[in-house]
Simulated scan of single mutants.
Amino acid sequence: MNKLNPVSAILDRDSVAAWLFIAPALILLSIFLFYPIAYLLYLSFTTGSFTVSGIEWVGVRNYLRLFTDADFWQVMVNTTYFTLATVIPTIIIPLGLAVLLNKSFALRGFLRAAYFIPSITSLVAVGLAFRWLFQTEGPINNILLQWGLEPIAWLSSTTWAMPVLILLSSWKQLGFNLVVFLAGLQVIPQSRYEAAELDGANDWAKFWYITLPGLRPTLVFAVLTTAIFTLRSFEQVYIITGGGPLNSTNLLVYYIYEQAFSRFEFGYAAAAATILLLIAFVFVYFYLRVWNKE
């Protein structure tokens, strides 16, 4: 039996054609993805600078400073709180709405479009609107006064500023997850529900034993995308609170921005950005593990 020459296997017509087709994508990925990631890792071990002559190798000094910085750990706590408090409602609420909208009724199409509108609305415009709504003399406090309640300093309170950002992010992400869940519900065979009805199962039993297991890959995808959406949150912090009051709403991406473009410590900012990248990789790793099991 003739053995195939490895060189000829690589250079045969089909292989050459395949490489030619994927070459543009590989070039673009190398320029806009692989090279920036590699440069970020390199920069995190230097002082960082806009000019090559200003870069000085410092080893792991940026990481040691990062892990001993009290402000960084407060930012990590803020980011964790913000992420969890955004992911939970933006999974539960759209899931319930999707189950309801999956049933046939007159305004189903209109409501689908209405719920999706926040997802395509400019986050900057929405942030300005929320800042106006929750300012000290804004409409929200006017409503509280009409109800006989004391107004709240929403944006200058270390207690209430973060919930405003969470409310904005949850409202923004709700429509996207709703559409994802509606698409996932279409994949579940109706015969399962019909069989359950014949066995006398109620709506809750059908949801728990048919809908949730059928939506497992969709749920994992929705949790992953929502977590990444919240991890990269920047605009709402920049527009509404600026990381305050007293650093209580400073999130990781905004912290990176401050270190890089306010204090010009690019190496230190690159180290913080590397931590963010590793967190995102962890999410993707768990998603791929669940996907392979499916």
Rank of each mutant, 00 (worst) to 15 (best):
G148Y: 10
G243Q: 02
Y209P: 04
S15A: 11
Q74D: 11
T121D: 04
Q173F: 14
S233T: 15
Y35Q: 12
E137D: 15
D12Q: 15
L231V: 05
P24I: 05
T249M: 02
L40E: 13
G175Q: 00
G127D: 04
N5G: 06
M162A: 00
Y81Q: 10
S104F: 12
V223M: 09
D12I: 07
L182P: 02
W147T: 11
A129M: 14
A195F: 09
V282P: 06
S49D: 15
N292W: 12
A114G: 07
Q74A: 10
L252S: 05
W132T: 02
R216M: 14
L20D: 03
I152S: 01
N78Y: 04
A222C: 08
A114D: 07
Y63I: 09
D69H: 15
S157L: 00
P139T: 08
L33P: 01
R216S: 14
Q74N: 14
R61A: 15
I31K: 03
P139G: 09
D69E: 12
R192V: 06
L276V: 07
A9N: 12
G200R: 10
I10A: 11
F110E: 08
S169G: 10
P151V: 02
A201T: 11
N5W: 08
W147E: 11
E137Y: 11
N202D: 15
I93Y: 01
L277M: 15
P94C: 01
L123N: 04
A269H: 03
R232H: 09
N2R: 14
P189R: 09
L41F: 15
A23D: 07
V77E: 11
I143A: 10
Q190Y: 07
Y254H: 12
W132N: 01
L182A: 02
N2D: 12
L149Y: 15
F283Y: 12
Y209R: 13
T241Y: 02
G148V: 10
V282A: 13
I166Y: 02
F234Q: 01
L278R: 06
S44Y: 05
T121A: 14
V58S: 06
Y63F: 15
T158Q: 10
N142Q: 15
Y35W: 13
S119R: 01
W154V: 02
L123R: 00
F50C: 03
N141A: 03
L144Q: 02
F72H: 07
L84N: 03
L165V: 02
L133V: 01
T80L: 14
T249W: 03
F72A: 07
I256D: 01
V220H: 02
